[in-house]
Structure formats: structure tokens, C-alpha cells
């Protein structure tokens, strides 16, 4: 199976193409504000380098969020347009699931966190096999740390943001081959129904009934 992976939920572009669970090539690039300009040119290069045409892809695996609202929309729009137009299989995973995917680790619990400002994070708790212990949510960082204290094993925070914590923290480096192997067999969805997972209402919606 030829799988195309794309994650633009942070300031990074993470993308890769694998054939039968073997990664052929990948992109790991900090693009920040340039995400909208350079995601597709970089993806075009990726396809050229591995000499695979978009029409040859069997399945698209896209990160649906949470994270940067604009970032998620870029990846999701590309992925759903690609899948719809070429009639390809498509499925999603969350950015936190991707962050908690590490092929081998000494830690028992992996706690991905994305800074959501004002003391809040998008976070979750997974064990090292990827089983969800605490579901993805918009949560006070302190509250998540209290949940971590009760875990019966060693835990580690995985983040690319500057978050101070008494818990050990490692920076996120996408293990794209492992991510694809772990998630590519997830059930496919209708491309029209693939949408970002923001985990947070817009400010206008939050303030509407105030």
C-alpha cells in the first residue's frame, strides 16, 4: 500500500510517502508563516523524489488537529481535495496521537502537549503502545499535570512549545514511518466528511451567549 502522510498542525510541515510500511522519503521542515506558500511545493518535490505520481497513492493519512487553526485547515484541505478528486482512501489521526507515536521508549506514559495559551494546552495521555489513557482535550496545563502524578509509571511530556514543567520533557520529532505503520489501516472516511478537530470553539461562539 502506498500511503501519503501530511501534518501541518504546528509550525512544521511533516509529510512522507511510504510503500508497504517502508518510508520512501519524508519532509520535516519548520515553515511557520510560510506554511501556506510552501506546503504544496514541498509536497510536489516529495512526490518527484520518490518517483510516485499522486494518482498512484492508495491512502492518505492526515493530521486533523488540534493545533494551529490555520495550519490544520491547510493540511486537511489539501488531503480532502486530493482524496476526493482522485477517489483515494483517506483517514485521520490527531496531532496528539502523532506526537505520542514513538517506536521505542523507556517511558510508560507519553503526554503530548500543544501550547494553547493562557495556561491551557491541547493535551492527552497515551501509553507507549498508543492506547489512549486520557482523551485529547483543551485542558489547563496544571490539571493535566495533576493527572500525570497519578499515573503508575514513568511519564514524559512531548512538545515543540516552550512549556516549563517538573516532568521530564522531550521535543517532538515526528517518527513518520512509525506513524504511518500504526495508523494507515484505520477505517477510511468519506473525504467530504474529513474536517479539522479544533477542540475549541471560536471566540465569537464562546462569547455569543455571554
Amino acid at each position: 500500500m502506498k500511503t501519503f502522510y501530511i501534518d501541518t498542525s504546528s509550525s512544521y510541515l511533516f509529510a512522507g510517502i511510504s510503500v508497504d510500511k517502508q518510508l520512501k522519503n519524508e519532509i520535516k521542515l519548520k515553515l511557520d508563516k510560510e506554511l501556506s506558500s510552501f506546503t504544496l511545493p514541498k509536497i510536489e518535490e516529495l512526490f518527484k523524489e520518490v518517483e510516485i505520481e499522486p494518482k498512484d497513492i492508495d491512502k492518505i493519512l492526515v493530521v486533523k488537529g488540534p493545533g494551529s487553526f490555520t495550519g490544520i485547515r491547510i493540511g486537511v484541505t489539501i488531503a480532502k481535495t486530493f482524496a476526493w478528486s482522485l477517489k483515494k482512501e483517506i483517514t485521520t489521526l490527531s496531532s496528539l496521537e502523532a506526537m505520542a507515536t514513538i517506536s521505542s521508549t523507556d517511558y510508560d506514559y507519553l503526554v503530548p502537549m500543544i501550547d494553547a495559551r493562557r495556561g491551557y494546552v491541547y493535551g492527552a495521555i497515551y501509553d507507549r503502545q498508543g492506547t489512549q489513557i486520557l482523551k485529547d482535550q483543551y485542558i489547563k496545563k496544571e490539571t493535566l499535570e495533576i493527572a500525570m502524578e497519578d499515573l503508575p509509571g514513568k511519564c514524559v511530556i512531548i512538545t515543540n512549545d516552550i512549556l516549563t514543567s517538573k516532568f521530564p520533557t522531550i521535543s517532538y520529532d515526528a517518527q513518520i514511518e512509525e506513524i504511518i505503520a500504526r495508523f494507515e489501516n484505520r477505517e477510511s472516511q468519506n473525504p467530504h466528511a474529513i474536517n479539522p478537530e479544533y477542540l475549541k470553539l471560536t471566540e465569537a461562539e464562546e462569547n455569543k451567549d455571554k
Partner: peptide
């Protein structure tokens, strides 16, 4: 724009 660029790329 991203949809248009994707269509331009894949087709």
C-alpha cells in the same frame, strides 16, 4: 487557494 493548488498539482 489550497484546494486550487492541490487540484493543479494532482491533475
Amino acid at each position: 487557494l489550497e484546494a486550487a493548488k492541490t487540484l493543479a498539482f494532482i491533475h
